[in-house]
Structure formats: structure tokens, C-alpha cells
């Protein structure tokens, strides 16, 4: 197991706190639909920093990467196929027009 220096940990922690403030500030600006996207991107960046450095994934084996990849892929399947139903439903009212 590779030893990561304390300095790295402090830097990562600092940037995580900065990103937290950034999320909050971004939410104060009206970006319409993009508010959600920006918030999720920032959260993803924060999550990646934690996984890569705090959880040492950056220095881990390919196997660990595969496990992480599988987890994200399956989460993606759960989301995309469930939403494939909800996002393509025809509202009942518009069916009645036919």
C-alpha cells in the first residue's frame, strides 16, 4: 500500500471545502435546468477526489478500478433503464386526443 503524504491529504481536504462553498454559491445563481447539472458535476468531482486520494484508488490495482467501474456501470444501468420508462411516457391526456 502506497503511503500518501500528509500534504496531499490537506490539499485534497482544502479543495473539497472550497468545492462545497462553490456548490452553495452556484445554487444561488439562476441557471435554469443547469443548476442541477452544475451541482452534480461538482459533487462528482468531489467524489472522484475522495475516491482517488482519500481512498487511494489512484494507487490501487486494476482490480479495484474494475470493481469501481462495475459499481458505476450498474448504477448507470439502474438509472438509464428506469428513466427510459419515465422519460418516454406519453401523458394520458395526449393519448385521449387520438
Amino acid at each position: 500500500m502506497k503511503v500518501i503524504s500528509e500534504t496531499t491529504y490537506y490539499i485534497i481536504c482544502g479543495s473539497l471545502l472550497v468545492f462545497t462553498v462553490l456548490t452553495y454559491l452556484a445554487a444561488l445563481v439562476d441557471l435554469g435546468e443547469w443548476n442541477l447539472v452544475v451541482a452534480l458535476i461538482i459533487a462528482a468531482v468531489k467524489g472522484s477526489l475522495i475516491i482517488l486520494f482519500f481512498m487511494h484508488a489512484r494507487y490501487s490495482s486494476h482490480l479495484t478500478w474494475m470493481v469501481i467501474g462495475a459499481a458505476l456501470l450498474w448504477l448507470g444501468i439502474l438509472f438509464s433503464l428506469t428513466l427510459s420508462d419515465y422519460l418516454t411516457r406519453i401523458p394520458f391526456a395526449s393519448v385521449l386526443i387520438f
Partner: peptide, 13 residues
């Protein structure tokens, strides 16, 4: 989703 064909699932899904 093939368990839900008649359950009200979107027809495209």
C-alpha cells in the same frame, strides 16, 4: 422491464 409490459410502462421502454 419485460415483467411490466402490461403494468403501465412506457411503450417505448
Amino acid at each position: 422491464g419485460h415483467h411490466m409490459f402490461v403494468a403501465g410502462e412506457s411503450m417505448y421502454a
